[in-house]
Design a protein around this nucleic acid. Structure first.
Lengths: 197, 197
DNA sequence: TGGCGGATGTCACAGACTGACATGACTCAC
DNA sequence: GTGAGTCATGTCAGTCTGTGACATCCGCCA
């Protein structure tokens, strides 16, 4: 399967570049075309022009392909919590983290098809859930660095990610009427009302 | 593998009764003895005196054994929400659901070892998370039956399950100083404070 | 020139799950 | 009591995921 190609500089190279990218693209396409569970790693690898083994070198499993950006999001939110003004109360700091995600959620169409894939398969939902849970963990950690103690930190983080989730889903459903960030802000306000009631 | 046994009434029966129970027990024991990922279904089946195929007739997969009671919990909580006084606000109804779980969380030692198994394996954590998510779904549904609209229902349910989780973890960690129900009540109060702040 | 490291391939395999069909004890209608 | 049907289980063959060990070959550097 050693495909010889011409590189930019004209020298021979043993394999096409960016296997990871091709694998990711091939996987997403196939999940969309035939469904996640109907897609085998062999098919993904074939479309990407590599072997199955190579797939598993880049992705821990078949599901992980769809959650590639999750560590970036995690850093983004944790940083936002840490860099929130010293005067900010826990839920305010979490609000800043919710806001920070806005930078990532821009391509609505991509987000929608990705979510459609996830919603179609329970095992992908499980994976999504654990990613969200890691987010909670990261925020708890960041809050603790601000001096917030338990159980307040956990409560605020849980609550924040709950809002994050509802906001994201609402954004996907609404289309372009409101941005993700607007929705998240509105929901946080709503929550304060519900909880205060 | 057809084990002939004497039944209570003395008649011959083809197999020992309660395969499901034996499988469940064998699995839990083995997960504890050698770790979840080091345990094969073949080993579980062997200890239970049945074939692998029989394991998969009772449990959808290796993980599901540990989440057998989850549908009962779901009904319990949904019923509590539905049967809460008509005057109860969303979070009060959710509080009733939290309280209702107290009936299930009695055997501390069992809950602790089960949780230790789950905490030791990411794939089990994923499963636990999706069960919790189903709980959220059930509560949302129950709240909507009470006339609570979105996004309030989702927010209240998410928040409630967040508390549920923290309360359960706290109960396992504290030992016997407070009952699960007490802890849950305290946390709900705490949350109202955090959110109102 | 020759050795080294990195990305990939090749191979062999264990283990999770599934579908199709077989078996034999029980049960119920007649 | 007999024959059909049902139920729990067994048997078997197979697909797919994921992993470990080792081979290959290119580009780089001394």
């Amino acid at each position: 399967m050693s495909v010889a190609v011409i590189k930019y500089d004209g020298r021979m190279t043993r394999w096409q570049p960016d296997s990871r990218g091709r694998l990711s693209k091939a996987a997403t396409e196939l999940y969309l075309e035939r469904g996640f569970s109907q897609t085998t790693v062999a098919q993904i690898a074939e479309r990407a022009g590599v072997t199955e083994r190579t797939f598993f070198r880049y992705f821990a499993d078949k599901r992980e392909v769809l959650f590639d950006g999750s560590s970036r999001l995690q850093e983004l939110m944790a940083d936002a919590v840490i860099n929130a003004p010293a005067t900010a109360r826990p839920l305010d700091a979490v609000g800043a983290a919710l806001d920070a995600c806005g930078a990532v959620f821009v391509d609505l169409e991509y987000s929608q098809s990705r979510q459609a894939i996830i919603d179609s398969d329970p095992s992908l939902q499980e994976r999504e859930l654990i990613k969200r849970d890691r987010l909670v963990g990261a925020i708890v950690h960041a809050l603790q660095a601000r001096g917030v103690t338990e159980p307040t930190a956990s409560l605020a983080a849980q609550t924040g990610i709950g809002i994050f989730h509802v906001a994201f889903a609402t954004w996907l459903a609404e289309g372009t009427t409101r941005s993700y960030s607007e929705i998240a802000r509105d929901l946080l306000t709503e929550l304060r009302t519900v909880a205060a009631a």
